[in-house]
């Protein structure tokens, strides 16, 4: 009881000290669209905001997502494993079409991640599309094979490295820029594939993280609750 009270007092005092000492300033942005495009080089302005001007926010979003996935994995581990038989759909339409559709889904996902700075899209959408596409494969393939791929790829461990990669990128901003989280200076020609500095790189990092996370959630759910 005393511990709870002390921790609440400490937390609230930290909160108030923070509030009274932070200088928020004028919240309106002084950037115009032309300035943003000239400085960043991305045709998709949302991408330039998310991946360059407000990369700090994006980093914490990725961190929150990672921690949520770790929580899901941790608590699903405690549930007993599903021991019923695999339900593989015997419909020929699904069995033949799903592998073909999956390749198209992978292509769409890569395209969205690659051109996130030119058109609509980005890392998050690409990761979710790829992770959801994998569940279609689990309709037609036995669970053992998917489990084998999941275990062998060690994706569950590698995905935790994504926030670390973004941190390293942010620190390296000191090398080629003047501040942390500075954009890579090769802005290129607006509208071409190699533009927007490091947008493609960060899109792929975020895409991998989200893909690994969604796949982990689906895998854990199927493993511990069974498919459909």
């Amino acid at each position: 009881m005393i511990k709870t009270i002390i921790s609440i007092i400490l937390l609230s005092s930290i909160f108030f000290i923070f509030i009274f000492n932070v200088n928020i300033g004028d919240a309106t942005s002084t950037f115009t669209p032309e300035l943003i495009i000239r400085e960043n080089g991305s045709q998709n302005m949302v991408s330039s905001i998310v991946l360059d001007f407000r990369l700090f926010d994006t980093f914490f979003e990725v961190l929150v997502f990672t921690i949520a996935i770790i929580g899901v994995s941790f608590y699903m581990e405690k549930l007993p494993e599903y021991k019923g038989k695999d339900t593989i759909l015997r419909s020929p339409v699904i069995q033949i079409m799903t592998p073909i559709l999956f390749q198209i889904i992978v292509l769409i996902s890569l395209y969205i991640a690659l051109t996130g700075h030119i058109g609509p899209g980005g890392g998050f959408a690409a990761g979710v599309i790829l992770g959801t596409g994998l569940i279609g494969v689990s309709f037609v393939k036995p669970m053992d094979e998917i489990e084998n791929i999941f275990k062998r790829s060690k994706i569950e461990k590698f995905k935790i490295l994504s926030p670390l990669l973004i941190i390293i990128y942010g620190i390296l901003g000191l090398v080629w820029g003047d501040t942390y989280f500075a954009n890579f200076p090769l802005t290129g020609e607006v509208g071409s594939l190699l533009s927007g500095g490091s947008a493609v790189l960060i899109n792929f990092i975020i895409g991998f993280e989200v893909f690994a996370g969604t796949w982990t959630i689906l895998y854990k759910f199927i493993k511990h609750r069974g498919l459909l």
Partner: peptide, 18 residues
């Protein structure tokens, strides 16, 4: 359109499966 892509995958497919 960026949000629309995410919403249609998350809202209509991913959450549905989960």
């Amino acid at each position: 359109p960026d949000v629309a892509i995410v919403e249609i995958t998350v809202g209509a497919a991913f959450i549905f499966f989960i």
